[in-house]
Amino acid sequence: MHHWEVVMATAEGMVFDIQRYALHDGAGIRTLVFLKGCPLRCAWCHNPEGQQKRPQVLRYENGTEKIAGRRMRVDEVLREVEKDTIFYDESGGGVTFSGGDPLVQPGFLLELLKACKGHDLRTAVETSGYARWEDVAPVAPYVDLWLYDLKLMDPERHRRWTGVSNRRILSNLEQLAASGAHVIVRIPLVPGVNDDRQNLEATGRFVASLGSVGEVHLLPYHRAGMSKYERLGVDYTLGDTPEPAAEAMERLAAILQEWGVRTKIGG
């Protein structure tokens, strides 16, 4: 096996789940590695157990408990990920780091990515983009595909719905795009939050101005994560928000397409 560089196989980080046969997070059959911690607090988040850096307890209806979050070493993660190598070979798949936001653990993420590349695996990173550029730049050479969330274009509205400004998110995206990285922009479309024409117009204009962004994926809001809130003892504030209808999704996609942006509904 050819190792590009020395990998810190013993570097540790906090992982809250590893899912195999993931279908919606990059090409082919993929394994999703969920890293813990996220700087954002989106009301619609479907992985709320990944938000905090420390382990969180999920209490199930039948009284059992599960702890989300355990420390894993790079080589342990790799061992799990490599179990599906034959499926990556067959399908052009690979590993996708998700979260939380994996950039919350930049050192761990970097070592994981280096290790993956050393083992000739294809990589993807799913991120909110909210990170210091100094943390993004070092990992970028090891990322084959960025799945980059763009929730709201208006800084104020962004702050209101996610808790943080989108300034860094936009500038990181600009820099990544300028560097020629392969990026897919993903927009979780939440009715009443970001499904207005104005936001999509602004998104279209912005994305169209970026060089290497391949396409935009519109992800319709769904309530699948709702039960996790109860298990965490956290309020779910979007309780009666409807899941968007297929026609509405088509309409919103059309707005982006007006800007010449390749748009797909679903991941």
Binding site: Y21, G28, I86, F87, E90, S91
Partner: peptide, 8 residues
């Protein structure tokens, strides 16, 4: 992806 699963 199902096809790839079968092939693998």
């Amino acid at each position: 992806k199902l096809l790839h699963l079968v092939r693998a």
